[in-house]
């Protein structure tokens, strides 16, 4: 059996204008999951349920062996959580926050905290209200990282950060994973961040999980085929092809179940395969959201 740090089974939550619909999610220990969705897709609600801050109507949530939300106090002892809308106390200094968090977590690593202060270019004696957005995010991240949690849960950690700060943050996340007992879940609408550092990728849209795989499988299954079709031959519907673009002579097929046999099928039809392009995660995400919305609309 896989060692799972986070396990959702059929988790649902009903709101007046939004439903989270039977979410299944598995996050193996030692890996990093990128959780991708548009604004309002249900990323934050899912993460709040994971943290026990919102109670699900249905389904089981298990985090680090604790059942949520009942065991949240024990579970949160091992979780570092930072969300984009989280604020620290404006009137207090970063040093005060560090001392406060340190008094709670016995695993707090002061040496690492000082190192992060330096790396993130933060001044501990500065009051939080004087910090820029990027500095606030980094301060919150420092407080979460230095307690050395077994699970890091980050809701949009890179949103609104400048490129340098983003790079620093991603670098620290990767450094966490040097220890294979530790696990990260982070949500983002920036697919580039997710594509680079994630092992697992989960797409969510309108409260439903669209896809959840390891990244290499994900990227391998999606291809764009550029064909040249002789005149008078119409392209039949091919299994696994979810979108046909381009012109009738120069069609571009998008598939989410690519395999080499597909090429010979095209060639047997008389088409020349001009190119087989791999797709970026962003292209894959946009295409699968559109495809899902179209099939739902029909």
């Amino acid at each position: 059996m896989k060692d799972l740090t986070v396990h959702f089974e059929g988790v649902s939550k009903r709101y007046p204008h939004f439903d989270l619909d039977s979410i299944d999610l598995e996050l193996p220990t030692g890996s990093i999951m990128g959780f991708i969705g548009a604004n309002g897709a249900g990323k934050s609600t899912t993460i709040r349920i994971l943290m026990g801050l919102v109670h699900q109507d249905k389904g089981q949530v298990n985090v680090l062996g604790h059942s949520m939300p009942a065991d949240q106090a024990a579970a949160k002892f091992d979780i570092g959580f930072v969300s984009e809308d989280m604020r620290l106390y404006g009137a207090a200094t970063l040093r005060w926050h560090m001392e406060f968090v340190r008094s709670i977590y016995p695993l707090w690593d002061q040496l690492y905290a000082e190192k992060l202060l330096h790396r993130f270019d933060l001044k501990p004696q500065q009051k939080i209200k004087g910090l820029s957005h990027g500095q606030r995010v980094k301060a919150a991240l420092l407080l979460a990282l230095a307690r050395r949690p077994r699970l890091l849960v980050l809701d949009e950690p890179t949103t609104g950060l400048d490129p340098v700060a983003r790079h620093e943050v991603l670098g620290e996340l990767m450094a966490v994973l040097a220890d294979e007992e530790r696990t990260i879940l982070f949500s983002s609408h920036n697919t580039q961040d997710v594509e680079q550092i994630s092992d697992q990728i989960t797409f969510i849209d309108r409260g439903k999980i669209l896809d959840s795989y390891d990244k290499e499988t994900f990227l391998d299954r999606w291809r764009r085929l550029r064909l040249v079709l002789p005149e008078s031959i119409a392209l039949p519907h091919l299994p696994g092809v979810i979108d046909v673009g381009g012109s009738s002579r120069l069609p571009v097929l998008t598939t989410n179940r690519f395999e080499p046999a597909m090429l010979s099928v095209c060639q047997d039809l008389g088409a020349t395969v001009q190119a087989v392009d791999s797709m970026t995660l962003e292209e894959i995400f946009v295409t699968s959201v559109q495809y899902r919305r179209e099939t739902l609309a029909v």
């Binding site: 943290m51 026990g52 801050l53 949240q72 106090a73 024990a74 579970a75 949160k76 002892f77 979780i79 570092g80 959580f81 930072v82 969300s83 809308d85 989280m86 604020r87 620290l88 106390y89 404006g90 968090v101 709670i104 919150a140 979460a144």
Partner: peptide, 17 residues
């Protein structure tokens, strides 16, 4: 209002605490 609640609730406490 000042969104420090999510910081507090990220600590190892239940809502009853």
């Amino acid at each position: 209002k000042e969104q420090t609640l999510s910081f507090v609730m990220s600590l190892p406490i239940s809502y009853a605490d």
